[in-house]
């Protein structure tokens, strides 16, 4: 799914956060949004992922504006996966049940968890596995419906370096098989894994590297 942003502006109250962002993100590949803390990465990602309405400008998905997409719940469920800084696994459900909650069809759950290296942890609960494993379960939940694109905001913010690199490798691997990833992070190491790097500074796109 090709995502394009035109003249995005965003204000929080009187604070001018995004100051005219124009972007075109290809339908697949691994795109990283990097920049200093406060540069507007989260705000941009929230707008691109339909969670936040921009104050000005438009975002289109394969050429269609948000209003033309129909039922937004269904659109999200079919096309978009989310990974947050915190895993937000539901504590009373096992890892497998957490993934199943999102799944439109149950078939792919076990192979996917296997591929993410948590195949044997399906019956465990989030407080019975490590931080890296929790984030992998959250990634499985984001990938289960074969979304066109997965949005992640600081997905490694709560992980140590080793687990963080593991997560980037997973994104790399899955983006090779066709899923798009748009990941906001202040961690510069992400650049080694991404196809496209969008550098933010003070609410504008400073540079785009490929």
């Amino acid at each position: 799914m090709k995502i394009e942003a035109h003249a995005l502006e965003h204000y929080y109250g009187a604070e001018h956060i995004l100051r005219g962002v124009d972007l075109s993100i290809p339908s697949s590949g691994f795109t990283a949004i990097i920049g200093e803390s406060g540069s507007g990465k989260t705000t941009l990602l929230s707008i691109l992922s339909t969670l936040l309405q921009p104050t000005g400008g438009t975002v289109t998905y394969d050429g269609k504006a948000l209003a033309e997409l129909g039922n937004i719940d269904l659109f999200r469920r079919r096309n978009i996966g989310f990974v947050f800084q915190f895993h937000y696994l539901i504590s009373y459900l096992s890892l497998r049940e957490n993934v199943a909650l999102a799944a439109l069809a149950p078939e792919g759950i076990d192979p996917l968890m296997e591929r993410l290296g948590i195949g044997r942890l399906g019956s465990r609960y989030s407080d019975e596995v490590s931080g890296g494993e929790r984030q992998r379960a959250a990634i499985a939940r984001a990938l289960i419906n074969h979304p066109s694109v997965v949005f992640a905001d600081e997905p490694t913010g709560n992980l140590d370096t080793k687990n963080a690199l593991g997560v980037y490798e997973l994104f790399r691997e899955f983006s090779n098989s066709g899923t798009g990833f748009i990941v906001a992070s202040h961690d510069k190491k992400i650049a080694d894994f991404a196809d496209t790097i969008i550098e933010m500074e003070d609410g504008i796109v400073k540079k785009i590297h490929h």
């Binding site: 803390s37 406060g38 989260t42 929230s46 969670l51 936040l52 989310f82 947050f84 800084q85 915190f86 937000y88 905001d153 600081e154 913010g157 202040h186």
Partner: peptide, 12 residues
Amino acid sequence: IDPMSLIQRGGA
């Protein structure tokens, strides 16, 4: 509940 509330506000 807005999923936006899951995003760590103004974070890193």
